[in-house]
């Protein structure tokens, strides 16, 4: 079924719902975890769940690094997960070709979130000598989203480059404008 709308030279279509929904699901779980931690950092919850590291979560979530920005770092993480979920769910199964802008935005949202998560995982023990269970769980989720999101990202970048090489405006291809083959598989149009 996926054969006909796979990108040229690809063995599968990276934009099907089966490909995207697991990532969106991970993003929503990450949003719930980060949202919970942000509510603690805002003082709405007086305590935070920490099964393994004693005072670890309290120390980490009240550290100087966590308050370096105007909003707590977990709130920023929750916004990042929300951006991942929204950009993951917009568009249909041909979106690698019809909406490169949203696919590329999706890839750009997923990558840095994972990078910042790993940075925070490093800073926790190195600067404060503590770990925070839910922060680690959030980092695992954000890193697990990177691999499965990158195939679609690659397909859209290849598409923009290929169409540009054919003389179309990269700008218009990026925004999915005037695609005369919209709705028709590219490979079928070649004959």
């Amino acid at each position: 079924m996926a054969e006909s709308d796979a990108p040229p030279g690809w063995s599968y279509n990276p934009s099907t719902w089966g490909q995207r929904l697991p990532i969106v699901g991970l993003a929503l779980v990450g949003f719930l975890i980060a949202g919970y931690l942000a509510l603690y950092q805002w003082g709405i919850f007086s305590g935070v769940w920490e099964p393994f590291f004693g005072d670890g979560s309290r120390v980490i979530l009240n550290s100087s690094i966590s308050r370096i920005l105007p909003i707590p770092d977990a709130a920023l993480g929750a916004l990042g997960y929300l951006a991942d979920a929204v950009t993951g769910v917009i568009g249909r199964r041909g979106r690698w070709r019809t909406m490169p802008w949203i696919v590329i935005l999706f890839g750009l949202a997923v990558g840095p979130l994972g990078a910042v998560s790993i940075l925070l995982v490093i800073l926790q023990p190195v600067l404060f000598g503590e770990f925070c269970t839910l922060c680690l769980a959030s980092a695992v989720i954000s890193v697990a989203m990177i691999g499965p999101a990158m195939d679609e990202f690659l397909a859209s970048l290849q598409w923009v480059k290929r169409e540009r090489a054919r003389g179309r405006s990269a700008w218009r291809v990026f925004w999915g404008l005037d695609d005369e083959r919209r709705g028709a598989p590219r490979t079928a149009a070649q004959g």
Partner: peptide, 22 residues
């Protein structure tokens, strides 16, 4: 590695062209 990715990441390099079929 069972899947094909249209030339992969290196196809994005300026010196490469994105192939129609890998």
């Amino acid at each position: 590695v069972e899947q094909r990715f249209g030339g992969g990441w290196s196809a994005l390099l300026p010196s490469h062209t994105v192939p129609e079929e890998h």
